[in-house]
Computed example of a mutant assay.
Amino acid sequence: MFKQALSTIVALALTLSIGSAFAAVDVNTANTDALRGIKGIGPAKAKAILDERQAHGPFKDAADLSSRVKGMGGKTVQRLEAEGLSIGNAPKTAAASAGGANHVSATPVASSAGSKPVVVKK
């Protein structure tokens, strides 16, 4: 009984640690500590990323990051993305968010003769 409980706890801890290792760190919102949590980003690179983001705004994509931060070529950015760095989550533009917070869009779905409509309330 004890062995089974111990193995369950170990398996749960391993699952949680693996899950947190793959949690994405958004380069457009992360602080120094979060950036340094990505394998391959040290204190100097984290500072360079934050300084560039503060001076010129959020990064649009991987190419934008690699062109704006010295020493971060395309392959380096790809490796960092594999380690959990996410890029391109810049704030939405006014045109993209014109619908507002309560905007709902519907996608037409083909119905069959015997199907009933499904109503989803928010």
Rank of each mutant, 00 (worst) to 15 (best):
A106P: 00
K70Q: 15
D26A: 08
A46K: 12
S86G: 01
L35Q: 07
S67R: 15
I87S: 01
S66G: 11
L80V: 08
A95M: 08
A24W: 01
G114S: 13
A110L: 11
A62E: 09
S7C: 07
P43T: 13
A82W: 00
E83Y: 01
S67H: 14
G40S: 10
R36V: 05
N28T: 05
E52T: 15
G40K: 10
V109S: 03
A63T: 14
H56A: 15
R68V: 10
S97Q: 14
A101K: 15
K3R: 13
A44P: 02
A96S: 12
A34Y: 02
L85H: 01
G57D: 04
K116E: 09
S112R: 12
F59Q: 02
S97C: 06
M1L: 10
L35S: 06
P108E: 01
G19T: 07
A106C: 13
H56P: 00
T15M: 10
G88C: 08
H56R: 14
G42D: 05
D26K: 02
L50C: 02
A55V: 02
A21H: 07
V118Y: 02
A24E: 11
V119F: 10
T107L: 08
A110H: 07
A98T: 05
A11K: 13
S86I: 05
A13F: 12
N31Q: 05
V119M: 06
V10D: 00
A21R: 12
R53Y: 10
S66K: 05
A98M: 09
K121M: 06
G99K: 11
T32K: 14
G73R: 08
A5M: 14
L65V: 14
D51S: 11
G42C: 05
V69Q: 02
A63G: 09
G99H: 08
F59C: 06
A113V: 13
P117D: 12
I87T: 04
K92F: 15
S7P: 00
T76E: 03
T76P: 02
V104S: 00
K75N: 13
F59K: 08
A34T: 06
L65E: 01
L35D: 03
M72S: 03
G84L: 02
P58S: 15
I87H: 04
N102E: 07
F22V: 13
K75G: 11
S111I: 12
S86L: 04
I9Y: 03
